[in-house]
Amino acid sequence: MPKQVDVVEQRRTIAAAAVSVIGAAGIDGTRLRDVAAAANVTTGAVTHYFDGKDAVLEAALEEVVRRVLERPETDSPADVRACIDISASYLPLTAESLGEWRVWLAFWARAMTDERLRAVHRRYYTAIVERIADRVSTLRTTPPTRAEAIACADAVLAAVDGVGCRTVLEPEVWPAERQRQALSMLLLPMLTAFAAGNQEF
């Protein structure tokens, strides 16, 4: 009897391999046969599950976002320092997360000129912002409005993006500790003001 193939699992295996390959070679240097080799499947298997290179890129980005959204958060008491530590976990602190960031930035470049990919990008950003908004809302004893929490989350994510982009471009001069320090300098005054209920945080 032929072996049953779990389609979802196979797609995720290929997507994870694509994250690794794109992270190392960039999107322009990535070939479907390299993704197939990294996934330990044939090139035909890749093209069976994905309709071309852009579809593989999109799946790789989906895998990156899935990892971010499934990353467990600490159950420590809600305070500014804990929120900064959680925000820092989004940064490219390890070789693996640096590769994930390279996929994210490769997708940015494609999305700038592709409306469909831009819509995908907006959807993923919305999911990440919503998660951060949930976290920063816990900083206040009197919960903020959702609009306030989203505005704060947007600012947190902008700071993460800034430090992350610098690190991807200059990883040799942005080790994990420097990334954390820079993010803390950006977020500490802002989140302290937000936690105090300052509307002009």
Rank of each mutant, 00 (worst) to 15 (best):
Q10A: 13
G52W: 00
L186R: 10
Y124F: 15
A24D: 04
D6V: 06
R33C: 13
V41A: 06
G23T: 02
M112A: 15
E96P: 02
T167L: 06
S87F: 00
Y124M: 11
H48C: 05
V168A: 07
F107A: 04
G29I: 03
D85A: 13
P2K: 14
L157F: 06
T113H: 15
V56R: 13
E62C: 09
T94P: 07
T47R: 11
S20L: 12
L98T: 02
V103M: 03
V68Q: 06
L61A: 11
F194I: 03
S76L: 14
R31W: 08
L57A: 06
T192D: 05
A15R: 02
P2I: 14
S89I: 07
T30N: 03
W108L: 12
R166L: 15
K3P: 07
V35F: 03
E170I: 09
D85C: 06
W101Q: 03
G197Q: 04
P189D: 00
L191W: 08
R140N: 01
A18I: 02
V160A: 02
D134A: 10
G44A: 14
L98N: 01
T192R: 06
L186T: 04
T13V: 13
N198A: 10
L183D: 00
A59C: 05
A176F: 01
M1C: 09
E62N: 10
H121R: 15
E200N: 12
G99Y: 01
E96L: 06
Q179F: 04
T42H: 11
V35R: 08
R166C: 14
I14D: 04
V5P: 07
A176E: 03
T138F: 00
E115W: 10
Q181L: 12
R12F: 15
L69T: 04
T94K: 08
L57Y: 02
D51R: 05
T74K: 06
A158W: 09
A88N: 00
A109S: 15
V68S: 07
S20Q: 06
A37R: 11
E177P: 02
W108H: 14
V5Q: 12
E62D: 13
I27S: 05
G26V: 03
F107C: 04
A36D: 05
E58K: 13
I27W: 09
W108F: 12
R140H: 01
T74G: 14
A155N: 09
T142Q: 12
